[in-house]
């Protein structure tokens, strides 16, 4: 098997197992308030971490880059217009523009 096939098979098996674990273990159960209170805050924590690592990191080094500016511009336009499509297109355009300078 080649690298692509092994990677795809491995990613598929692990993703499926991770996504199945929660619903199987916790389905149909009432959860305590402390658990729910943490769950509500998971998504801002995870999304902010994803954005920050993508926008400020290249491999294992940190820094401001053309894509940092692009992502900031995309965020600004989403905040003002609520259009996710405008957000991603502008992010790419600004990044491309800064790189072309």
């Amino acid at each position: 098997m080649n690298t692509a096939a092994v990677t795809i098979a491995g990613c598929c098996a692990i993703t499926a197992a991770i996504k199945a674990a929660g619903p199987v273990a916790l389905g149909g159960r009432e959860l305590p308030t402390w658990f729910t209170s943490v769950v509500i805050l998971l998504s801002p924590a995870l999304l902010a971490a994803l954005v920050a690592t993508q926008a400020f990191a290249e491999g294992d080094s940190l820094g401001l880059d053309a894509d940092t500016a692009g992502v900031a511009a995309g965020g600004l336009v989403y905040w003002r217009t609520q259009s996710i499509i405008a957000c991603v297109i502008l992010a790419a355009a600004v990044t491309a523009g800064v790189r072309a300078l």
Binding site: S43, A66, D67, C87, A92, V94, T95
Partner: peptide, 29 residues
């Protein structure tokens, strides 16, 4: 050169902005 690598974080930033309706959510983010 087309800036395609900015699409992924921008997409997630849009999702994040939808979540920031409380001071606590902003602090956690």
């Amino acid at each position: 050169a087309l800036g395609l690598d900015a699409i992924f974080p921008a997409f997630f930033l849009g999702l994040l902005l939808n979540e920031l309706h409380s001071g606590r959510a902003r602090g956690v983010a």
